[in-house]
């Protein structure tokens, strides 16, 4: 009965490091990223001007936008993975990248020549971009969900959404190695949709996938 159970658990006891939760999440991000980078590199290929792009403002701006989602998402996931965890104010930091891209979008549209706005918004790959980001997010999503399953979230829908958001942010960052789009409005719309997709999938599947 319960006495036997306590006995078995005590015999099964192994030391646990204080940073165990973080390590587990970092491991998942690393594993998912390796697969995602390999996939983008093999199936989509890096953008042809990647080396030149490294010195361009827009490349880093795009990366900053997507990495911000990944970082804020991961910080929230680290909280929500615990039974008492609430993302709290950390979630509010998402306002930073959104504001930044909003300002950049308005500046670019204001400066655009007549008829140039459409190109800024649609670029050359608007129809594909969100789908590709969502696809790239799959290995990250799975790895992070796997990590979360061994942790102890108690608000499963929110936990799923934040896990998806993190996977989406990472996927968009990795996808930007391939994507040559330079318009801030393009990023604000299509990248955001790509990041949002795994977030929605996470919110929908969280209650089932993360149950313990």
């Amino acid at each position: 009965m319960t006495d036997d159970l306590i006995d078995r658990l005590a015999r099964d006891l192994k030391p646990v490091r204080p940073e165990a939760v973080r390590n587990r999440l970092v491991l998942a991000v690393a594993a998912g990223s390796i697969v995602a980078v390999a996939g983008v590199w093999l199936f989509l290929g890096p953008r042809s001007d990647l080396i030149r792009a490294l010195t361009s403002m827009m490349f880093w701006m795009k990366l900053a936008y997507t990495v911000a989602f990944a970082v804020v998402g991961a910080l929230c996931v680290e909280r929500i993975a615990r039974p008492t965890g609430r993302p709290g104010l950390r979630l509010a930091w998402l306002a930073a990248p959104v504001l930044l891209i909003g300002v950049a979008t308005m500046v670019q549209i204001a400066k655009a020549p007549a008829g140039g706005v459409r190109t800024l918004v649609m670029g050359g790959s608007a129809a594909l971009c969100p789908w590709l980001i969502a696809t790239v997010s799959a290995p990250l999503f799975l790895a992070l969900m796997w990590a979360m399953r061994s942790l102890a979230p108690t608000r499963l829908r929110l936990a799923g959404a934040l896990t998806g958001l993190t996977a989406g942010g990472l996927a968009a960052s990795i996808y930007s190695l391939h994507c040559g789009e330079t318009g801030a409005p393009f990023v604000a719309i299509w990248y955001s949709l790509g990041i949002l997709a795994p977030c929605v999938v996470g919110a929908l599947t969280g209650p089932r996938l993360l149950r313990w």
Partner: peptide, 20 residues
């Protein structure tokens, strides 16, 4: 009794989620 045991098992397997 089932719930007590379930909880003890969860405490055991998810003990790393307690923040010191």
């Amino acid at each position: 009794e089932d719930l007590v045991q379930d909880s003890l098992i969860a405490i055991h397997t998810r003990r790393e989620t307690w923040d010191r």
